[in-house]
Write a protein that binds this DNA or RNA. Structure first.
Length: 506
RNA sequence: GGCGCAUUGGUGUAGUUGGUUAACACGCUGCCCUCUCAAGGCAGAGAUCACGGGUUCGAGUCCCGUAUGCGCUACCA
């Protein structure tokens, strides 16, 4: 039988990284087993669901490269089927109508309400099967319906027994029926509820493996009961450990902001492959310990058996721009930027340069080789795609900023540089041909002639040419920037040297 | 309140059926390289394997309890 898995987000916000990881694991499992990966949008909560959110989920998945098979299923379109199934269960005596008036609940205090109700019930000796309408006669029930009395539909769970299922991650699970209440399938306004909808849709879609967050682990028992009542085959389940915030609390938008949104990583210069690789390592580890994995390797290595059971902490420090997200994610991205074949990195760099008006059409043809060489040179020190337009700006434009700290350290400290640098420019202008080797030879000779350390000139040049204190080997920069631009930039400094001194300490 | 799940250095993880100094990656420190900063190489700090009992010749690995965290317990999803 072909594996069929699904990712079933509710479109009530952007794509959360935890959800993105669920999608990834489902997708990987489908690829691994040669099965299908389906997408179902659980938009039954009309109040909170938005089309915009649906779009962003799809975009996020596209960005991660998680393509889905078959048409997207919108759960709201199946509401009639869900209702029909519930009514059929009533007709079969497997569910019953509950005419108890609906209790209003306050979202903010539900948890508290649950605990209080539980305490009250156990105090008066009531159990989950105490509903007075559970054993109402068919005639009486029909009479009330004919009278127009509103009712919810609840699943009728046997008093004795237990449910079992074997979770592929958490192992064998069982639960006493006594622990499970007669769950509501249909609200009194006819609206189908989550557990019913999920089960009906999963059956309908032929889902063979349900891979989802651990928050659904205990609810799975209810769903197993539903599969059985419906006479359907129970799929395999695999629950994934949750992803927690640094304080081991819940990772939420409200509390943690954009760091939990997948789009943030796209917008801040992550390579999808890098983030995907990082995400795969949250709660799962390859058998051989090799962590940087290409997509084929990831698929090949992936297995549900190597997912572990304890929650993963997503480590980041709010209010610290340097550690705004997990350091390993940042490292992974740098790793990809550094090691991907330059050709493969090119499209992402192009998009970044374009967005910052640094792209020139020549990069597509006659200057393509130069571009590739430049990318290769500067990427060694980069962490995100943003660095190509930030730190790397001077390679693509003459209009770049000087880092105050760099100017301070490499230019201002040595007043002689205001004469030395233009003189060096003269020397380099006469260096023909102009290559890494000849530029180095000329500069070193010039240093010797003028009696200064080569390092002084090198570091000064770096800041003059790139605005930065750090960067690639200077002689390679000379060559990449070319003789004209190098010479020009070395000379351009004199006027603002003075201006800078007026600024005082930076 | 009840039920469930988890607990290996700061973080992510490896530790297949209990057996010598608890492994890897990120991060951190130092050194080397060097024109800077990375990368890379080398070295190092950091874990009484949550705690307490047990079983055993021997436990991170098995059992019981405790604590802590998380999840579920809704006419939310």
């Amino acid at each position: 039988m072909t594996t069929r898995v699904r990712f079933a987000p509710s479109p009530t916000g952007y794509l959360h990284i935890g959800a993105a990881r669920s999608a990834l694991f489902n997708w990987l499992y489908a690829k691994k087993t040669g099965g299908k990966f389906l997408l179902r949008i659980e938009d039954t909560d009309l109040q909170r669901s938005t089309e915009e959110s649906t779009r962003s989920i799809i975009e996020g998945m596209e960005w991660l490269g998680l393509s889905y098979d078959e048409e997207i299923v919108f759960q709201s379109a199946n509401a009639d089927k869900h209702r029909a199934a519930a009514h059929k269960l009533v007709a079969q005596g497997k569910a019953y109508r509950d005419f108890t008036p609906k209790a209003e609940r306050d979202d903010a205090t539900v948890k508290q309400g649950i605990a209080e109700r539980a305490r009250a019930q156990s105090a008066e000796g009531a159990d989950h099967r105490s509903n007075p309408f559970r054993d109402l006669s068919q005639e009486e029930s029909d009479r009330r319906v004919a009278n127009g009395e509103p009712f919810a539909v609840r699943l009728k769970i046997a008093r004795e027994g237990k449910t079992h299922f074997k979770d592929m991650v958490f192992g064998p699970q069982e639960r006493e029926y006594a622990e499970i209440e007669d769950l509501v399938l249909l609200r009194s306004d006819g609206h189908p509820l989550y557990n019913l909808s999920v089960v009906i849709d999963d059956i309908e879609m032929g889902i063979t493996h349900v891979i989802r967050g651990q928050d659904h682990l205990t609810n799975t028992h209810k769903q197993v009961l539903l599969y059985q009542a419906l006479g359907a085959a129970v799929p395999q389940f695999a629950h994934l450990p949750l992803i927690l915030a640094p304080n081991k609390g819940k990772l939420s938008k409200r509390k943690h902001g954009e760091v939990v949104s997948l789009t943030t990583y796209r917008d801040r210069g992550f390579l999808p492959a890098a983030f995907r690789n990082f995400l795969a390592l949250l709660g799962w580890a390859p058998a051989d310990g090799k962590e940087v994995l290409s997509l084929p390797e990831l698929i090949q290595q992936f297995s549900l058996e190597h997912i572990h059971r304890s929650p993963a902490v997503f480590n980041f420090q709010e209010n610290d721009p340097r550690h705004w997200t997990d350091e390993k994610a940042l490292w992974m991205n740098a790793e990809y930027i550094r090691n991907l074949p330059a050709e493969e990195l090119l499209p992402a760099v192009k998009a970044e340069l374009r967005a910052n008006k640094l792209w020139r059409d020549e990069y597509d043809d006659e200057d393509r080789d130069w571009l590739l060489k430049t990318i290769d040179l500067i990427r060694q020190r980069f962490f995100t795609l943003k660095d190509f337009s930030g730190q790397g700006r001077a390679y693509f434009s003459d209009d770049f900023d000087f880092e105050p700290a760099a100017v301070n350290k490499n230019l201002r400290k040595e007043p002689r540089l205001r004469e030395l640098l233009p003189a060096l420019a003269d020397r380099l202008e006469q260096t023909v041909p102009f290559t890494i080797e000849t530029a180095e030879a000329s500069l070193r000779q010039f240093a010797e002639d003028t009696g200064v350390k080569a390092g002084l000139l090198i570091n000064g040049s770096r800041t003059m040419l790139t605005g930065q204190a750090v960067g690639p080997s200077m002689f390679e920069v000379f060559e990449i920037l070319g003789q004209n631009r190098s010479v020009e930039r070395l000379r351009s400094g004199v006027p603002w040297f003075d201006a800078l001194n007026e600024l005082g300490d930076v």
